[in-house]
Amino acid sequence: MTHDNYEVTLTAAAGTGWNALQEQLDTAHQTVKSLAISDRRYGVLITRHRYDAYTVALSPQVPYGMTFERDCPETPQ
């Protein structure tokens, strides 16, 4: 079973502290990492869009067994 497009998007509610956000990120990372391990094809990419918005996803750009992080600020509108 493959999970090619699997991702978790996190947006912290107003007033969410850093510790609560970190726990959400850790949980999302563990979930996606377990899928990556079962598929044995992709790594995990964590993208910070804003200080309160993240995506944790399987990525063919990341080698199996690795987790990469990147900043990708959204364009202001």
Rank of each mutant, 00 (worst) to 15 (best):
P73T: 04
T55H: 02
E23I: 04
S34T: 14
H3P: 00
T31D: 12
I46F: 02
A28T: 03
T16N: 07
Y6V: 12
Q24F: 01
G15H: 10
E74Y: 06
I46Y: 01
Y54D: 02
D26G: 07
M66I: 02
T16R: 06
T31V: 13
R50Q: 12
G65V: 04
G17C: 04
E23C: 01
S59Y: 05
Q22M: 04
M1H: 11
L35M: 14
T31C: 07
A57K: 15
S34I: 03
H49F: 14
T11D: 08
L10V: 14
V44F: 02
E69I: 00
T9Q: 13
A53K: 12
R70H: 00
Y54C: 01
A12N: 11
S34D: 13
M66H: 10
T47P: 02
Y64A: 13
R48H: 09
R50D: 13
Q30I: 01
H49Q: 10
L10N: 09
S59R: 05
D4F: 02
D26C: 05
H49N: 03
L21D: 03
L35C: 07
Y54F: 15
H3F: 09
T16A: 14
V32Q: 05
D52F: 08
A28N: 04
K33L: 12
Y54W: 14
H49I: 10
Y42W: 06
D4T: 09
Y54L: 06
V44G: 01
T9K: 15
R41G: 03
R50H: 07
S34W: 04
P60A: 13
T11I: 12
T31Y: 06
L45H: 05
A13L: 11
P76S: 10
E7A: 15
T11N: 11
P73L: 11
S59K: 05
T55R: 15
Y54R: 05
I46S: 03
L25P: 05
E69D: 04
Y42E: 08
Y64D: 12
L35P: 05
A14P: 09
A36T: 09
V8A: 06
Y6M: 12
F68Y: 12
L45F: 04
F68H: 14
S34A: 15
T47D: 01
T31E: 14
A53N: 03
A53Y: 00
A12W: 12
S38W: 02
A14L: 09
T9D: 10
T67M: 03
R40S: 08
D4K: 09
L10S: 08
D4Y: 01
A53H: 08
A57S: 15
A12Q: 10
R40D: 07
